[in-house]
């Protein structure tokens, strides 16, 4: 599921860069093909997550990501003040915010993208606004996803956990002390 989402997000961002940056556009050309790949990878982006809803374990993770408890606020305060002592369950507050922000951003990008894809869906002012939101949010999404990759690159144990589903007790005790199940 993570891999499916990551692959689609990668395709979206890569094709967006080709559509958007003149040097890449000159290199690749084939504008119509690139547009089609971008549109389809965009609308398919929520599919892996929706498929995941069939899994009880994934639904449990979604519940965890949704709920913020006292320790999450403490975690955020500690991060903002660059202090240690950052209590977290299976997901820390940063991961929860990242998940929610990305989910919202994907929905907004899909909505504004569809407005531009099917120009007869809505009046022109909507389309201009959709283009504005789509362009600027795309830059933010690229920056946030880059941040996500950077954090992952600095934590081999977390990457191992994503690949295998298992993490060591010591790592979990240090990074996610409140995680029990």
């Amino acid at each position: 599921m993570h891999r499916g989402t990551a692959a689609l997000m990668g395709v979206c961002l890569a094709t967006a860069a080709v559509l958007y940056l003149p040097p890449l556009a000159e290199l690749v050309g084939r504008r119509r093909t690139v547009v089609m790949v971008h549109e389809w990878s965009g609308v398919l982006l929520p599919v892996p997550l929706l498929a995941g809803l069939f899994s009880a374990a994934f639904r449990a993770d979604l519940r965890r990501l949704n709920r913020f408890a006292g320790h999450d606020r403490q975690w955020l305060r500690a991060v903002l003040r660059r202090r240690t002592g950052r209590p977290a369950g299976k997901f820390n507050a940063g991961q929860k915010l990242y998940a929610a922000w990305t989910a919202g951003a994907v929905l907004v990008m899909a909505g504004t993208g569809l407005l531009m894809w099917f120009p007869h869906l809505a009046p022109l002012v909507w389309r201009t606004g959709a283009g504005f939101v789509h362009d600027w949010l795309a830059l933010l999404v690229a920056a946030v996803v880059a941040g996500h990759l950077w954090m992952a690159s600095r934590d081999p144990e977390a990457r191992l956990g994503m690949r295998t589903g298992e993490v060591s007790g010591r790592w979990a005790e240090r990074e996610h002390p409140l995680w029990r199940d």
Partner: peptide, 26 residues
């Protein structure tokens, strides 16, 4: 872990709201 404020849901809805506002003000 399972209770507490549903901040995640609020962030998602907030993003959608901001997106709609952005389209209107765009």
């Amino acid at each position: 872990e399972d209770h507490g404020t549903p901040v995640g849901r609020r962030v998602v809805l907030g993003m959608i709201g901001l997106g709609a506002a952005g389209v209107a003000a765009g």
